[in-house]
Design a binder for these strands. Structure first.
Length: 196
DNA sequence: GGTGGGATTAGCT
DNA sequence: GCTAATCCCACCA
């Protein structure tokens, strides 16, 4: 197995972590089986000076995981029917997180197809709520420890590292405030990046 | 191929 | 009451 990212990785600033997560593997061991996806798109959400971040208005019941220790999963419910998966970053209590927006399916593809009820590989995890479905991530995993629990993130296999020149930066997607902040990172050549 | 609206609910004002 | 870090499908061209 590849090297699992450790706590010191997650302690870095969200914008750094967002960029460095590109090309890493998101792994989920679920009762139905293992699924692995290569991260191809992320967005950083800061705390102060970031009106788009859930943590902007301070600690609430919903966003409490964002204010906890780094390296935890922040999973929130949105639009009455979807979940999104984030990684908490920075020092404990800083209120930062990185939203995982898209994956390239690597392992457990038949299981992903089943969960998504879709056959097209590029449609399995090319959006934040889609990848949560494909990976079988549920709200029960909110707050779980990415260095010990059933969801982990590993470094790329030797020889499968991404080319830094492939990384593009842009404004974030689907938000109405803070659109001018360039905190979205994605792999330019990837067919698995979200559409919106 | 592209677009407009509906689904569905927790949390905040 | 209204909005939200979204997705899907019906409908039009």
């Amino acid at each position: 197995m590849n090297k699992i990212l450790n706590i010191s990785f997650y302690k870095q600033d969200a914008s750094i972590v967002a960029k460095k997560l590109l090309g890493t593997y998101l792994i989920h061991q679920s009762p139905e089986g293992q699924t692995i996806g290569k991260i191809v798109e992320t967005e950083a959400y800061l705390s102060i000076n970031d009106p788009a971040s859930h943590s902007f208005k301070g600690l609430t019941n919903r966003n409490s995981v964002m204010f906890g220790p780094p390296g935890r999963a922040y999973i929130y419910y949105i639009y009455g029917m979807y979940y999104c998966f984030n990684v908490v970053t920075g020092k404990k209590g800083s209120g930062q997180a990185v939203l995982i927006r898209a994956l390239e399916p690597i392992e457990g593809i038949p299981l992903m197809k089943l969960r998504r009820n879709k056959d097209e590989i590029t449609e399995l995890a090319n959006g934040p709520a889609k990848l949560v479905q494909a990976m079988g991530i549920t709200k029960n995993l909110n707050g779980s420890d990415l260095t010990h629990d059933s969801i982990q993130i590993s470094q790329p296999r030797a020889g499968d590292e991404i080319d830094p020149n492939e990384i593009k930066v842009s404004g974030r997607v689907g938000i109405s405030k803070g659109n001018d902040m360039l905190l979205r990172y994605y792999l330019k050549k990837s067919k698995f990046v979200s559409k919106y």
